[in-house]
Design a protein around this nucleic acid. Structure first.
Lengths: 149, 149
DNA sequence: ATCCGTGCAAAATCTTTGCATCTCG
DNA sequence: CGAGATGCAAAGATTTTGCACGGAT
């Protein structure tokens, strides 16, 4: 599991300054690990920790963390809605999303579903895989019970 | 392979009117099947066929085609950039994208790489899969040859 | 003391909406 | 003819940027 210290150390190592704003943002991301937050939401929670923070800083910091592979930028909602998702310890993103098209619920799949077929893909397309992003659409358990339409 | 007639018939069957604007947009999508077009790009090409068309109509029509599962809305670029991708014959989206992080090239994989593991996922998570979207990041053949960095 | 980072507000993008008008069926 | 479609321009929503100030190293 990723810790606050760990992320801040990464920032520091990459030559970035450790400001209260960045600390607050990382803290929020760690606390809300289970959710997928929009920039606005990160801003909202970060404000409670450090009121002297602007939305622009959130955007700038999120860009930074995406570059450092600390978080993933995902966008499964409508256009213009980007969400952020904290990555695991090794900076690898081996979980996928099951999205229910009925109720909009998002299930996290922590395992790497694709581990078995990745080598096959690499060979077939002569492509070195670093990472993947899998989004599956369908109906969740609850909505299935309620009957399809 | 999907034809112009085919798509227009789908629109008609769903109770929508067959206007010149819609015809032009579908024509563009078919002609540019290999590319992923933004709304702006679709607008640009559609204009050459039917000058009396507005960007708003493109957005409205793309929404329509997404609902009818004729095209997919994808967003692997930066925030705020949505691209559209024509689906196959049966309205199913069984191709994935291999994106080279070095040169930015996007390889299309036409087959359904995930066919084998989908049943497993459905069972494990009690989730009925309709579709999926797979984006793989890494290095393409050419960039591999040129040596990693 | 230097840069880097920040807030603020303005600007830039991308997308949606209201409304009068036009057109398909 | 009438419901649905469209263009245009205005409004919305989200993200980026310029700039002077403040803070971390």
């Amino acid at each position: 599991v990723e810790t606050n210290q760990h992320v801040m150390a990464k920032l520091n190592k990459a030559g970035f300054k450790l400001t209260n704003q960045r600390r607050a943002i990382v803290k929020v991301l760690l606390e809300k690990q289970k959710d997928h937050l929009s920039a606005e939401e990160v801003y909202h929670f970060a404000r409670k920790i450090t009121p002297e923070i602007g939305l622009a800083t959130v955007y700038r910091t999120m860009d930074l963390l995406v570059d450092l592979q600390v978080v993933d930028r995902i966008s499964f909602k409508e256009a213009g809605m980007v969400l952020y998702d904290l990555r695991g310890d090794r900076g690898q993103h081996f979980h996928s999303h099951l999205i229910c098209d009925r109720c909009g619920d998002v299930l996290e799949v922590e395992e790497d579903i694709m581990a078995d077929i990745e080598p096959m893909i690499e060979e077939k397309f002569a492509f070195k895989i670093f990472d993947h992003q899998l989004t599956i659409h369908g109906l969740c358990q609850d909505c299935l019970k309620r009957g399809e339409s």
